[in-house]
Amino acid sequence: MRKFVIVAAKLILSAVSLVGIGLLLFAGWLVWHYEYALGLPSEDGLASISTTGPACTAAPDRTYISLADIPPLLRKAAIAYEQPDFYEARSLSPIIGIAHAAANGGKGPPSGIIQSVTRCLMSFSTDCCRGIDMHIATIVLMQRVARTLSRDRILEIYLNESYFGRGNYGVGSASLAYFGRPLGPLAVDEIAFIVALPRMPALLNRRRDIALDRRNLVIARMQHTGIISDAEAMAARERPLAFRDPPPVKTMQQQAL
């Protein structure tokens, strides 16, 4: 009986060892696959991005505004709405991020601004990716972005290269499209509306009721984080939602004239 127990214990230990080795090999393959095999931008590649100016596209017709020239209230509002811990957040290990994704149907931990910029920079990886590969590759690249680029640079990219609807990229272009003026003179409620756009630009253009709710949600976040006073928040919420209608779509005949 004792001999049997010893043999059984050895077999169990061997099986556990094999499982452990298998898990280590699988973890190593995951790191190799998502760190190197998918052609994601490397940390050296990210570090070579200029300290200002377009990062995801060099389209000549897009308005680009340096972070220093974007009104502080708009910058703070974007952080309050999208990622309140933006400047304090530490990047996670890719393995932790992958485990989070596996436990949540492929979705990584939410990271607002950093995640949006990561998706923007994914355009450099033309061969990547589909399905769960896309989710996990985004997590891996997100860690690289957080480690390599300064938070100010990430915020500048986000504010200039996010999509704001009506064919507009960046807050400068959005301000002209929706309010007919540059960023400087925008009121609190107008800033809140622009900040709300990137999450659902098409819907907010179609549904003014939802646009009003989202604008007021941003105002509430701004109030909660202390970047506007209670009186400013109340006044902003009471203002009617007023932005320009989109220009009429030209017919084929009108375009030919």
Rank of each mutant, 00 (worst) to 15 (best):
A192R: 05
P60E: 00
M122W: 08
L73Q: 04
R207I: 01
M222S: 05
S17C: 07
I191P: 04
L121W: 14
A80S: 13
A196W: 03
K250W: 13
A101W: 08
G226P: 02
T225I: 05
A99P: 03
G53L: 05
N104Y: 01
I114C: 12
A233L: 02
L121C: 10
I12S: 05
R199E: 04
P198L: 01
R151L: 00
R119Q: 13
L155I: 14
E190G: 09
I191H: 00
G108W: 00
I219D: 05
F179M: 08
L203T: 12
V16F: 11
I227L: 03
P185M: 00
D127I: 09
M252N: 09
A59K: 05
R75D: 11
F4Y: 14
G167H: 04
G226L: 00
D189K: 09
L92P: 01
R199K: 08
G172C: 12
R239A: 11
I96K: 15
L11S: 12
S50G: 11
S93T: 07
F164H: 08
P240R: 02
A80Q: 08
V7M: 09
F86M: 07
A174M: 10
F86Y: 02
L11V: 12
P54N: 02
P198E: 01
E82N: 12
F179P: 08
P72K: 07
A101N: 12
E238Q: 15
S229P: 07
T57G: 09
I227Y: 03
L159Q: 06
A89Y: 07
T118H: 04
L18N: 01
A103K: 09
P54V: 04
P246S: 02
P60F: 02
F124K: 11
G97C: 02
G226Q: 00
G105P: 02
A103N: 12
V16Q: 04
L18P: 06
F179K: 04
D133K: 04
L149S: 10
L67H: 10
N216Y: 11
P247E: 13
R199A: 09
E190W: 02
T51S: 10
G172R: 09
A27V: 14
L13Q: 06
P240H: 01
P94H: 12
L149P: 10
D69G: 10
G39W: 06
D61N: 14
I95P: 13
R237D: 10
K250P: 06
S66L: 11
H33G: 14
G172F: 13
G106I: 00
C120R: 13
A211H: 03
L13F: 11
R130E: 08
L18I: 08
S42Q: 10
R119N: 13
G170Y: 08
L46R: 00
G167P: 05
S125F: 06
I95M: 15
Y163N: 06
I114Q: 13
G39I: 06
R239V: 11
L241Y: 09
I114V: 15
P240C: 02
L176E: 13
Y87D: 06
